[in-house]
């Protein structure tokens, strides 16, 4: 569905994306996981034609992506990292404008608006101005807007950043429902839990490169399933193990507070990048 070949983006001296190769299959829920500055947004912006490439190629459904090729743009839906709703327009008007821009006939446009307002739980606020919405509602409206024209590929750039935990959980439910309809989703996040819950495959990005690519479960297995966490000389340390027995053996030798738990994507990340996510 999405094929990225040798993609590079240079901002002067900074290499935001560094020879990235990536294939996302049809119907897949794919996660790009990485700390701030890893190059996730730049990648999404290049796929959605907002940022010109320095070199490399991007194809969606077999067609090269370019600002001036309108056919392929219709197959893509984008939810950017920041709010970009028309703040002086209502939720309904925002969706209507999108439908018109994507050449949807009136009837299907209106039906789709009702359907998506329902799906995102915004029916009651349909005729309020977007600027009066809370952060979570704005994000939902942006998702509804990106889905208006029934894209084949949905790009979600950190869809839950800045939302409180309860809203984030609701958002996850909403996003999970999406992929059941056969839509291909590329999501970026720096929340490991998010990738673990939503994504079938995860690419770990750091410094503009893909450092690892696999299913969340296999990535976790790769670095070890069990973590022993202990506190020593003012910092928390974690050691990863294949089996619980090995972990217990270490734990027995340690004094003070020791915690044994299953590893998660965060541990994978730490192990592979020697860096805490978000730092």
């Amino acid at each position: 569905m999405l094929v990225i070949q040798d993609l590079t983006k240079q901002y002067g001296q900074i290499t935001a994306v560094d020879h990235l190769d990536l294939v996302v299959n049809k119907g897949e829920f794919f996660g790009l996981l990485g700390p701030n500055g890893a190059g996730k947004t730049t990648t999404i912006r290049m796929i959605s034609t907002l940022t010109p490439l320095t070199s490399g190629q991007i194809a969606v459904a077999g067609q090269t992506v370019n600002r001036n090729l309108t056919e392929v743009k219709r197959k893509i839906g984008v939810v950017p990292q920041h709010n970009n709703l028309e703040s002086e327009m209502t939720a309904w008007e925002n969706l209507e404008l999108h439908g018109r821009l994507y050449h949807m006939p009136k009837k299907s446009r209106r039906e789709r608006i009702d359907e998506l307002l329902e799906f995102t739980g915004l029916v009651e606020r349909a005729h309020d101005l977007a600027r009066t919405f809370s952060g979570g509602m704005k994000r939902k409206l942006m998702i509804a807007r990106a889905l208006m024209h029934q894209p084949e590929l949905l790009l979600l750039d950190e869809p839950t950043v800045g939302l409180d935990p309860a809203v984030r959980r609701k958002m996850w439910d909403l996003l999970r429902n999406l992929s059941q309809g056969g839509l291909t989703v590329l999501l970026t996040t720096h929340y490991i839990e998010e990738a673990e819950i939503l994504c079938q495959r995860v690419g770990l990005m750091n410094g503009g490169r893909l450092v690892e690519l696999d299913t969340p479960a296999r990535l976790i297995k790769k670095v070890g399933k069990v973590v022993v966490e202990y506190f020593e000389r003012g910092e928390t340390k974690g050691v990863l193990f294949e089996t619980r027995e090995e972990a217990l053996a270490l734990a027995a030798k340690l004094a003070g507070s020791v915690k044994i738990r299953s590893s998660n994507l965060e541990d994978v990340f730490l192990q592979l990048t020697n860096r805490r996510v978000g730092e």
């Binding site: 907002l50 028309e86 821009l101 994507y102």
Partner: peptide, 13 residues
């Protein structure tokens, strides 16, 4: 407002 992006992303000449 960055709404310009919405038009750049759209299949709009």
């Amino acid at each position: 407002e960055k709404t310009f992006e919405e038009f750049m992303v759209a299949p709009l000449n």
